[in-house]
Design a protein around this nucleic acid. Structure first.
Lengths: 104, 104
DNA sequence: TGCCTATTTGGCAAAATAGCCAAATACTGT
DNA sequence: ACAGTATTTGGCTATTTTGCCAAATAGGCA
């Protein structure tokens, strides 16, 4: 792994780390439907609002979502729906596993 | 997030957590070319062999790679190339970020 | 201004992850 | 059986991540 590769894979790891949490995947899933503010997501998730805010900050810093303040609220949105392709990739892995299980 | 959703997103998180490391992404990248044994990957990566072995175990437990013992060595292989679609997804996010940066 | 709601930040403790070393295990060839 | 190579496992410390609470910040409205 040379220096260039190292930088490239670390940059990709920044993205994949941001995705490495069930709550954050769920947030992306919801944001695919429509934008939501922190309060609304908090109710959907059922965790402390500060926890949700921190999850959102992680996704934002990874460049996956962005936010817009309107009045009292901060609304979050997907920047690029390409993240969601990863959902089908993950589902693909899971399904492959299940069918392998059945083969045993 | 109801119970079913919770289980689904936690299962996906199992996969995404396995990908959330530069070294493991690099391993997958190499395994896409050909199979490699632990020793060979260790040399490519430049870490302790026990560290590499543990990374491989994580990927294996996530159902992303499998192994085959031949003689003295254990060879690892991708189970399903669908993981690699995630590379292009991540690259997509990175590129989107870069062009957003340029727009500022 | 003062109060209310929404959000972020700081701080902390618990849990999870990473990476090394040393020891254990497994296979090869003598 | 023994020596040598490859791999995994156990144990340890250091680092990172998580999630809560409390406090700080910001906007809306009376």
């Amino acid at each position: 792994m040379n220096e260039l590769e190292k930088r490239q894979f670390e940059e990709m790891a920044r993205i994949s780390k941001a995705l490495a949490h069930a709550t954050r995947l769920y947030i992306l899933h919801k944001l695919d439907e429509q934008e939501y503010c922190v309060k609304e997501l908090t109710e959907l998730i059922g965790a402390d609002i500060s926890t949700v805010s921190k999850h959102l900050t992680i996704l934002k810093n990874a460049g996956i979502i962005n936010d817009e303040k309107r009045g009292n609220c901060v609304y979050y949105r997907l920047i690029c729906r390409c993240v969601l392709e990863m959902f089908s990739c993950m589902t693909g892995v899971i399904e492959t596993n299940k069918s392998r299980m059945n083969d045993l």
